[in-house]
Design a protein around this nucleic acid. Structure first.
Length: 185
DNA sequence: GCACCGACCAACTCTTGCAT
DNA sequence: ATGCAAGAGTTGGTCGGTGC
């Protein structure tokens, strides 16, 4: 869940409408990461998502005066602006949308940074154990789990990749996860 | 007993239409 | 332009039947 307690979005938007650039900066500092994630989910490309975020904040700045608190929360309005900006870009078909191969690495690095030094140390210990447990699994179960949770494939896609029935893939994943849990303790 | 397989169900996401 | 609700579609997880 996104931390938003204690921040007055309505007030910040009102300040933006009055020309207070600091208010826009506060919104950006607080929610840019989350908003980038929203844009990323729609456009699926980091660079494009950053462009969307930039354009969306321009819109927020120029249209803050049109925001009406009586019609909804300020935070919801901000997220809607970003979402609509991303959707309009996708629908316009102006850009080719493809899978960003660097994204997973970036997200992983960001997650490690967020976790902090102590947690990162524990994370690496757990990853080492996880690797050992994965090695102990059957090849098909290991591949199924990796396709599902590393590559982000749906069960149907995995079944297609492995040329196996959907039900079988589901069984492999379930049993593989059970084995991993037992192995990890 | 174990693995495979498919049907079923719940949860989630997306789309659409309507009201403001 | 935005928010909201309802319906449709998709997905993942569980369970029971079947065959080796």
């Amino acid at each position: 869940m996104i931390a938003s307690e204690g921040f007055d979005y309505d007030g910040a938007l009102a300040a933006c409408a009055r020309g207070d650039q600091g208010a826009l900066r506060r919104i950006y500092d607080r929610d840019s990461r989350s908003l980038l994630g929203v844009a990323l989910r729609i456009v699926r490309h980091r660079q494009i998502a950053e462009d969307v975020l930039h354009d969306a904040f321009l819109n927020i700045w120029t249209r803050a005066g049109s925001f009406d608190p009586a019609r909804g929360a300020g935070r919801g309005w901000i997220y809607s602006v970003v979402r609509n900006q991303a959707l309009s870009l996708v629908r316009s078909g102006e850009r080719e949308i493809g899978v960003d191969e660097e994204l997973l690495d970036d997200l992983g690095a960001a997650a490690a940074a967020d976790a902090g030094m102590a947690d990162a140390f524990e994370l690496h210990q757990d990853l080492g154990r996880l690797h050992d447990c994965l090695v102990g699994l059957d090849v098909v179960k290991r591949n199924s789990i990796l396709y599902a949770y590393v590559d982000g494939c749906s069960h149907s896609e995995i079944a297609e990749r492995l040329n196996s029935p959907l039900g079988t893939v589901k069984t492999w994943i379930r049993r593989g996860l059970t084995a991993l849990r037992e192995c990890m303790g």
